[in-house]
Design a protein around this nucleic acid. Structure first.
Length: 431
RNA sequence: GCUGAGGUAGCCUAGCCCGGCAAGGCGCCAGCCUUGAAAGCUGGUGGCGUUCCGCCACGGGAGUUCAAAUCUCCCCCUCAGCGCCA
């Protein structure tokens, strides 16, 4: 949520920034928020005056009681207040509700370094690492390879759970856990505290961390309960300190979140391709930071650097793009995507999303920073970045590290986590 | 799931029966005192607004009343015990 104070004090700046999102709906919402805010403040004054009179009359009647009781005039005056106040307060509450409804639908303000563009074709490549591997004659898709190795069950999973689900079986499970552990160890070396969060959240904290349209499209709801399966550990970690005041001396707080993630993703794109690239359930090691506002740009680069290091250690070529204004989600002020080189597809595809959400999530969640019992609270910044989503990492590793005989060489950095296993071979436990 | 106890400022607590300006402690900040520190003393310590002032804030909502932390109803959450359970 945007700071309402900014709306009042620098409306031109806010409007110009929202305009860069290239969505006229935002400008309309902005004007509505400003208009309702003005009306609300006028209404608030009116209500305040009435409440002041009510309080004053209440006190006079209380005093009069000890001196033989209030006069009929005083009583009549006091009795006239509630009806007036009720009408004014109803209007006041409605205006505030309307203002906040508009305000909450506004996206975050864009960082000035976000490139201007209409969609993902206009994202700007800011760096590349490694040499894209040229197309091999008989390179297989990761899905085909997994099936040949007997390390995945797609068809049976579709029968038990539907499209977008899968069983991993055999040594690929070790590879999945190795990726998790490798990323976790890297983050631990760099001061990130591991967190296994709840995998289900209530609606109220959820509304603080994501935008409402996403909510309907991606979240799985538990029937009969106010609980939703998390789409990423970013969400429960962001909500961890909901309504609290963080001690500014303890910032930044760095976390390494570990969770399965559950996404319906109906709408924009479904589960459109065989394999584990886009699925309803996957494991992710996530980085998350609560930061002082002035530190967040620097920490955004730190997150990006950590994520890049994961793929460097895996030996996977990649590039980093600065996501343009037209392609940026509502919550982020700036976002880098890391796109890994998929050797079979001969294409860069997204494996990491690294966002600076500035104060947008924290304000919605009612998180402030400062010193306890001292005035001058400000809203901290939150940042998040994938360290590794194991499903996509598995896909890209299989495309790159496969051998002509259908086996897969285990990336060296993962071997210590796999009991020294160097090659994935067809599973003996097929059936 | 059942029963009970709770939800009051950053934290802890009083007030609730019996309606009338939300009391106190801890922590923190400032000042006084001190060579320095502690102790002590004094003041401050949430949100909103058109900020010398006013309003709001006792889990949320509705009701009764001139007036609700307090009375009534509905809802949410937490804890404890019991039940179930890996």
């Amino acid at each position: 949520m945007i700071d309402v104070d900014l709306l009042r004090k620098e409306p031109d700046r806010v409007e110009e920034n929202l305009g860069r999102r290239r969505n006229p709906e935002y400008l309309a919402l902005f004007r509505e928020a400003r208009e309702k805010d003005g009306e609300w403040r006028a209404s608030l004054q009116e209500a305040d005056h009435l409440r002041h009179r009510r309080n004053d009359l209440r006190d006079r009647m209380a005093r009069a009681r000890t001196e033989g009781g209030p006069s009929p005039e005083l009583t009549a005056e006091a009795r006239a207040i509630p009806d007036q106040l009720k009408a004014v307060e109803a209007r006041e509450a409605e205006l505030l509700r309307q203002r906040d409804a508009a305000l909450r639908r506004l996206p975050n303000l864009l960082d000035p370094t976000v490139p201007y563009g209409k969609d993902d074709t206009e994202n700007v490549v800011v760096s590349t690492w490694g040499e894209p591997i040229p197309e091999g004659t008989d390179r297989r898709s990761h899905a085909e390879l997994l099936e040949r190795l007997g390390m995945v069950e797609f068809d049976r999973a579709h029968r038990t759970s539907g499209a977008g689900f899968y069983y991993l079986r055999g040594d690929i499970v070790l590879l999945d856990f190795a990726l998790q552990r490798m990323a976790l160890d890297l983050l631990r070396e760099r001061g990130y505290v591991p967190v296994v969060p709840p995998f289900l959240l209530r609606r109220e904290p959820y509304e603080g961390v994501t935008d409402l349209a996403d909510f309907e499209n991606v979240m799985y709801k538990v029937e009969g309960e106010d609980l939703y399966l998390i789409a990423t550990s970013e969400h429960p970690i962001a909500a961890l300190y909901q309504g609290e005041i963080l001690d500014e001396d303890h910032l930044p707080l760095r976390f390494a979140g570990l969770s399965y993630n559950f996404r319906k993703e109906i709408g924009g794109h479904g589960v459109d391709q065989k394999g584990v690239f886009r699925v309803h359930q996957f494991f992710k090691v996530e980085q998350f930071i609560f930061a002082r506002p002035e530190d967040s740009p620097k920490l955004h680069e730190e997150l990006r650097s950590n994520s890049e290091e994961v793929f460097r250690r895996l030996g996977i070529p990649y590039r980093v793009v600065n996501v343009c204004t037209g392609d940026l989600g509502t919550v982020a002020a700036k976002k880098y995507d890391i796109e890994a080189w998929f050797a079979r597809q001969q294409a860069y595809r997204e494996v990491v999303s690294c966002s600076n959400c500035t104060d947008y999530q924290a304000r919605r969640l009612g998180i402030r920073m400062g010193k306890a019992g001292r005035p001058g609270k400000v809203v901290p910044h939150t940042l998040n970045s994938t360290a590794v989503a194991t499903s996509r990492a598995i896909a890209v590793i299989l495309e790159q590290y496969q051998n002509p005989d259908g086996t897969v060489t285990v990336p060296e950095v993962l071997r210590p986590y796999m009991g020294g296993l160097t090659v994935l071979r067809p599973s003996s436990a097929t059936g």
